[in-house]
Amino acid sequence: MSQEFEIKNKIAESGLVNFDISTLSPKGKRIGIDLKDYIFQGIVLKEKEFRVDIENLNEEEYRGAFVYIYCSADAIIPLWAYFLITAKITDVARKIVFGNAEDLEVLLMHNAVQTHDFSELQGKRVLVRGCSEQKIPENAYIELVEQLKPMVKSLMFGEACSNVPIFKN
């Protein structure tokens, strides 16, 4: 093939490093525990009955899982209730948080971004992928910029064919 008809991949030649933040998200099942299931007549949490229910909770359901504890009913839940559930499953669950599924994802991504070794991106031109199969909490992107700004040559967001420059060092 002659040189005038050679197809060049300018993106590959640019030295741009694609980074997909979704790769930081820990793999594993997510399980919610809704305290409304333990509320007597939809009003109150009775300690004696609650203790029995938690004692009978099957710990194996939560083995290796990321667990979020919440209450979908409009009820006042005493703090000790969260203590009892956490004490029951803490030896088998990977992580337990108070809040909903979104709160769990925010915390998991926070931990992932804060503990990831980004040294392979030192001095590089980095493009943070804009689309992902998985919903990524917005805060994760903010924390990612905080981590990358001091070390990368430039940062862009989006796709290689249509990106938004964020900054250049």
Rank of each mutant, 00 (worst) to 15 (best):
V67K: 07
G130C: 02
D91F: 05
Y70T: 12
A112N: 02
E105P: 01
C71Q: 10
E105R: 10
M109R: 10
Q134M: 02
T86M: 13
T86V: 15
I85A: 06
L104I: 03
A112L: 01
T86S: 15
R129I: 10
K124T: 03
N100V: 01
G130N: 05
V67Y: 04
R125S: 12
S132V: 01
A73L: 14
M109A: 07
V97L: 06
R94M: 09
C71M: 07
A81C: 11
D74P: 01
V128M: 09
Q134T: 09
Q114F: 02
F83E: 05
D117K: 14
E120D: 03
Q122T: 08
L57Q: 14
E61I: 10
I54T: 14
M109E: 05
I54K: 12
L108R: 12
I85C: 06
L79C: 09
E59S: 08
R125P: 00
V106Q: 11
V106S: 05
Q134C: 01
K88V: 11
S119I: 09
L127D: 03
E105K: 13
N100C: 04
D103W: 08
F83S: 09
A112E: 02
A93S: 13
A87F: 11
L108Q: 07
E102S: 13
A93M: 08
H110Q: 13
L107H: 12
E120A: 08
A81G: 10
E102F: 15
T86L: 08
N56I: 00
F118E: 12
H110A: 10
A81D: 07
K95S: 15
A112M: 01
A73Y: 12
Q114W: 00
L107R: 11
V128P: 02
E61D: 15
V92T: 11
L108A: 06
A65Q: 00
A73Q: 14
I85W: 02
E59I: 06
A73W: 11
L121S: 05
I54R: 14
I89R: 08
R94Y: 08
D103F: 08
K124Y: 06
I69F: 11
E61C: 06
N56Y: 06
S119A: 13
A87N: 15
I76D: 06
F118K: 14
I76A: 01
K124L: 04
S72P: 02
V106A: 04
L84N: 02
H116G: 00
V67W: 03
A73N: 10
D103N: 13
F66V: 03
D103C: 05
L108I: 05
E133Q: 14
R129E: 09
E55V: 01
L108T: 07
V92M: 06
H110G: 05
N100I: 02
E59F: 00
Q134R: 15
L108H: 09
G123R: 11
E60M: 04
I54M: 14
G99N: 09
D103I: 03
